[in-house]
Design a protein around this nucleic acid. Structure first.
Lengths: 128, 128
DNA sequence: ATAAATGTAACTAAATTAGTTACGATAAGA
DNA sequence: TCTTATCGTAACTAATTTAGTTACATTTAT
């Protein structure tokens, strides 16, 4: 939904209300505003309040990547997470798998993010 | 948890019960058996029933990758999913973003999976 | 003053997940 | 053959997450 919202803002190119955005996304304006709140805190959009308020991109669609959006709305740091069950001190696997696995997962997440980083909002606009 | 289980099987190297595995993972044997069920259906382990039953790897730890395990226990096809709200026919963004975005996400997921594919169970064993 | 918009809290409903209990089926071994 | 240890799986519970919804205070243009 966040990408949908951002792409709409890029496409429309002018100040847009949460209600218009909700019409495009097919959901409730409050749901949209919640996402816009996170996008705003991440500095990706600008919000204006009061009558004639609305939302615009904070910078050009050439300067906003899918990774920017992904990070703005994701609170989990990790794409796939480790279990958090208690360690069994007597078992070397129990004590060490998570650390070892975490390193490999982090590498995989890293290449995933590098890929998202390559795609800019303007690319989505163009390809539509 | 699935990786923890598989690494334990590799490390122990002999038939192991769901109860032992549960001790290592720090959870309930039933939770472990549910995961073992999926790993079994994926052909990654062998299960023996009855008294003196238990679980072993179906092939060497050099021949099992993190991607194999990931796929075995993941029912979602996609790492990150698209919203499923109704389309707004009047809005070209609404009609087209998802398709365009899906292509890029698929590419990113692909590099993620290629990375998991490089890591074999034996690597985790060694690094522990 | 009024109207139209954002920001956000509080609640609901649905979906997911881990954990748990229970029990049938299977197979080894006395 | 009986007993026992084990898997396989269904059914239930509790916790967590998510989207959606209602409501309302705040802000700003006219």
């Amino acid at each position: 939904m966040a990408v949908h919202i951002m792409t709409t803002l890029a496409y429309v190119g002018e100040k847009t209300s949460s209600e218009s955005l909700a019409l495009s996304v097919g959901t409730n304006p409050v749901v949209v505003r919640r996402l816009l709140g996170e996008l705003n805190r991440a500095g990706l959009i600008r919000a204006e309040r009061g009558k004639a308020g609305g939302f615009t991109l904070a910078r050009g669609s050439k300067e906003i990547s899918l990774l920017d959006i992904y990070r703005a709305v994701t609170d989990e740091q990790d794409l796939v997470s480790l279990h958090e069950n208690p360690e069994n001190r007597k078992c070397p696997v129990s004590c060490n798998v998570r650390g070892v696995l975490a390193a490999h997962l982090q590498k995989a997440q890293c290449v995933f993010e590098r890929e998202l980083e390559k795609v800019m909002l303007v690319d989505l606009e163009r390809e539509m």
